[in-house]
Simulated scan of single mutants.
Amino acid sequence: MNFPNEWTQKEFLQNKKELEAKGVKVLLIDTILSPIEKADTVLYNPYELQSEPEGSVFVFYCDTGKATLNRLKEYKEKFPKHHCISLHGGRGYWRVNMMVLDE
């Protein structure tokens, strides 16, 4: 799978479901100490994230998605064995009740 720099919430939910079915871990990373309601998030902690399985996907979010997109190069350098993506729109665009249904 080719990984873009950004995923929307819908892309995140769809890809998470698909990738985890293939055994790839997908983490939603909180960089602002503000968890998203009804979402399984992980606090940004480089030391702990380094221990995640190689090939895991890290989706970073902030309030608007701009800061994490701007820092994406830094994240990719810090985690070369993982795929780093920014959540488009960040926490502000997250829709609490959005879900992906099987087609």
Rank of each mutant, 00 (worst) to 15 (best):
F3A: 03
F3S: 02
N5H: 11
N5A: 12
E6I: 11
W7K: 01
Q9F: 08
E11I: 09
F12I: 04
Q14E: 15
Q14S: 14
N15F: 09
N15P: 06
K16R: 14
K17F: 11
K17M: 15
E18S: 14
L19W: 06
E20S: 06
A21R: 02
K22R: 11
K22E: 08
G23S: 03
G23C: 02
K25N: 08
K25A: 12
V26Q: 00
V26A: 00
V26L: 02
L27Y: 00
L28I: 05
L28H: 03
L28N: 02
I29V: 15
I29F: 03
T31M: 08
T31N: 06
I32T: 11
S34M: 10
I36K: 05
E37A: 15
K38C: 08
A39Y: 04
A39E: 06
D40C: 05
V42F: 01
P46T: 07
P46I: 07
E48P: 00
L49D: 06
S51R: 10
S51L: 12
S51G: 07
E52G: 00
E52K: 06
P53R: 06
E54A: 15
E54H: 05
S56T: 07
V57M: 02
V57L: 06
V57Y: 00
F58V: 02
F58Q: 00
V59L: 15
V59I: 14
V59K: 12
Y61K: 08
C62E: 09
D63C: 10
D63R: 13
D63T: 12
T64A: 15
T64Y: 15
G65R: 04
A67H: 10
A67D: 14
T68S: 13
T68R: 07
T68I: 11
L69N: 14
L72K: 03
K73M: 08
E74H: 01
Y75L: 04
Y75C: 05
K76P: 00
K76Q: 10
K78D: 06
F79S: 05
F79M: 05
K81F: 06
K81W: 02
H82Q: 15
H82F: 03
H83W: 01
C84M: 00
C84I: 00
I85W: 00
I85K: 03
S86Q: 07
L87S: 06
L87K: 03
L87N: 05
L87I: 10
H88T: 09
H88S: 12
H88A: 12
G89T: 13
G89Q: 12
R91V: 01
R91W: 10
Y93C: 14
W94G: 11
V96H: 15
M98V: 09
M99C: 14
M99Q: 15
V100C: 09
V100T: 13
V100K: 04
V100L: 12
V100D: 09
L101T: 08
L101I: 10
D102T: 11
E103G: 04
